[in-house]
Computed example of a mutant assay.
Amino acid sequence: MPIDLRQVAAISGMSGLYRIVKPTRTGVIVESLADNPSRLVAQARHRMSLLDEISIYTTDEETTVPLADVFDRIHQKYSGELPLNDKPSNEELKSFMADVLPEYDEDRVYVSDMKKLATWYTIVHKYVGFTEQASEEATSESGEESDNNETEDKA
């Protein structure tokens, strides 16, 4: 059963992405999206960001682009395989970002954000997959809420 970005979270201080399994009284049970998935309880002290609530700053002060839209652009442009090597340079990341989202704000989107974008896209592509329906639903529901949740994840 494919999952969408409303069920995928990044947890501050922990590498990788996590699928939300179910809530508990003290937090939520999450499962890592990895070759050997493990489950753990993310408590209230953990800062979690759902991927469908994250967006990227653009040069238009009033506009951000939801992460789901950026993932769709990457998927359409590269068919799943990123044009980056294992350890891309800062210039390679900036070039990749400009290719995918030419209107991104160079002053507010940092290289660390670009690294997360590439890493997260690779994980989502491998473990979640892209179905047109899931990405359309994530895009349509995140568009209104995303303005307050830019790429300020300080992991």
Rank of each mutant, 00 (worst) to 15 (best):
M14Y: 14
S15P: 10
S15R: 15
S15G: 15
S15M: 12
G16P: 06
G16Y: 00
G16F: 03
G16E: 05
L17C: 10
L17S: 06
Y18E: 04
I20N: 08
I20F: 08
I20L: 12
I20A: 10
V21P: 00
K22A: 15
K22S: 15
P23M: 01
T24S: 00
T24M: 00
T24C: 00
R25P: 01
R25W: 01
T26R: 11
T26F: 02
G27V: 07
G27L: 08
G27N: 11
V28L: 09
V28T: 13
V28C: 08
I29G: 04
E31Q: 14
E31C: 07
L33F: 05
A34H: 09
A34K: 06
D35K: 11
D35G: 14
N36G: 07
P37R: 06
P37L: 02
S38W: 09
R39A: 05
L40F: 11
L40E: 03
L40Q: 09
A42T: 03
Q43A: 08
H46S: 14
R47I: 12
R47M: 10
M48P: 02
S49C: 09
S49T: 13
L51K: 05
L51G: 05
D52P: 00
D52K: 09
I54M: 12
I54N: 03
I54D: 00
S55N: 03
I56F: 14
Y57Q: 12
Y57D: 14
Y57A: 13
T58C: 08
T59I: 13
D60P: 02
D60Y: 01
E61V: 11
E61S: 12
E62V: 08
